[in-house]
Design a protein around this nucleic acid. Structure first.
Lengths: 215, 215
DNA sequence: ACCTGAACACCGTTCAAGT
DNA sequence: ACCTGAACACCGTTCAAGT
């Protein structure tokens, strides 16, 4: 079942791991199963990667690197661009089972996922911000992004397994009469961050006084 | 070493698990080690909890439940209260090793951590918001909170193990000349969300036009 | 450059049975 | 109400050796 039936490159291992992730989910992506899918002994994987964490970080980076690049129109501001980047990242994470959880844990372990942060930082770079604001803003966006999508994916899986209807979902419907799409909820949360950042643009002073200052 | 040397209650198990978490970290908090700390066979744990996930969710809930309640002053607005709640939650997570990661993964699995969301929802309840805004706002706050603190804790551990200085930390210092405290970075990110929410207060209309609308 | 074979030191979970 | 004993079906990782 391994592609060319000869020896595997590091790239092959990542590709098969990605396929296995999507087919079986993160908890079942074990070194032994991955080795079996590659028609190889488990120990062979340790020639390519020093340990499982490193392997998973590489898979995580592969997901991020595949995110199509967003080409900003010239008239597009930092906020529109950041939202476009966020949507592209979300789509990529959603396209693999447990994608968000994988990337989130690679990030939490301090490996990989840097490319994602860089894209968000670059988008904010279009605005006139202090460097500190760019850092903190990109960090906040990334944390929200990964956490939200991981939660989305967990609910998708729980629903598909026919678990009890979550009380949270019920409440959301009660409130508005119509249940908003997941994409809309994501956009809304992300836009909260963008609105908050807008206050910190250097050139155009913020809406002084209108918003309660909490510091 | 178990408290009374007799049989254990469900509460005892949680308490010892919490101590073991803090001493050894989440990866080493195994059912077998926990059983040993309780002077009991591993199988005994399955009388108290159906599986490890459920046990960890209970530990997670215990951490959240211990967060001291924030008593709002009468003149305090929703934003100040939400920030106070967020700080209290952060402090509680920081006080146990891997606390944020534990709670984040319980939340991602759809178990526990509801109390944390409720506290944030309650804070927003002081403001004049659509119910939908309260839900999405509390969700965004919680995602940022858990992700940010998990990242903080991972960096603390990496630093204490003397790993290579992260390039990210270096950059932050370059930018501002002074390296801001972690608490300040947390407050800043959280305040971005609060500022974004302020635009959605029903009664007082937002600063129309000043902020680029991205929808 | 890439892999095998064999081993080490673990895991979570089940289940009949005990007190 | 709470636990033992024994087993099942796995894990990640190391390391000498092979081609």
């Amino acid at each position: 079942m391994a592609a060319g039936s000869v020896r595997n490159s590091r790239e092959d291992v990542i590709a098969v791991a990605l396929r296995l992730l999507d087919e079986t989910g993160l908890p079942d992506l074990t070194m032994r199963r991955l080795a079996a899918a590659l028609d190889v002994q488990p120990s062979a994987l340790y020639w390519h990667f020093t340990d499982k964490q490193t392997l998973l970080a590489a898979v995580s980076d592969r997901i991020i690197d595949r995110v199509p690049s967003v080409r900003p129109r010239d008239d597009e501001g930092w906020a529109e661009l950041a939202l476009a980047e966020a949507r592209a990242l979300r789509d990529a994470l959603l396209s693999y089972r447990d994608g968000a959880e994988l990337v989130a844990s690679a990030l939490a372990l301090g490996l990989g996922a840097d490319a994602a942060r860089e894209r968000l930082r670059a988008a904010l770079g279009r605005g006139d911000f202090d460097a500190y604001i760019v850092d903190a803003g990109a960090d906040a966006m990334l944390q929200f992004l990964l956490g939200h999508v991981a939660h989305e994916q967990q609910r998708m899986q729980a629903d598909s397994l026919g678990v009890v209807a979550s009380p949270h979902a019920v409440r959301a419907e009660d409130a508005s009469g119509t249940v908003p799409s997941q994409g809309a909820a994501f956009d809304f949360g992300f836009t909260l961050l963008l609105d908050g950042l807008a206050k910190h643009v250097r050139s155009a002073a913020g809406p002084a006084g209108l918003t309660a200052s909490v510091r």
